[in-house]
C-alpha cells in the first residue's frame, strides 16, 4: 500500500515517545493509543553506565 493510499483510510495510530503527539491526535478524533515507554534509565548516561557495569560481574 502506498503512503497516499494509507492516508485515505481511517488512521489507527500507536504513539511512542512524547505524549503531546497522542493528545493532539485524540483532540482531532483519531483513534490512537499511547505506549507508556521511556528510554532505559531515562537516557541518563551515568546511570546506564552503572547498570552496564553490573552486567559485568566476574
Amino acid at each position: 500500500m502506498s503512503v497516499n493510499d494509507l492516508f485515505k483510510q481511517e488512521l489507527k495510530v500507536v504513539n511512542l515517545g512524547l505524549k503531546s503527539f497522542y493528545s493532539d491526535l485524540r483532540t482531532q478524533g483519531v483513534t490512537t493509543v499511547h505506549v507508556n515507554w521511556k528510554p532505559k534509565a531515562g537516557g541518563k548516561k551515568n546511570m546506564l553506565n552503572l547498570l552496564n557495569k553490573l552486567n559485568k560481574i566476574k
Binding site: 552503572l50 557495569k53 553490573l54 560481574i57 566476574k58
Partner: peptide
Amino acid sequence: VNLLEDEDLL
C-alpha cells in the same frame, strides 16, 4: 557499584 568495584568483583 563502588562496593563491587572495591571488592574486585567487576
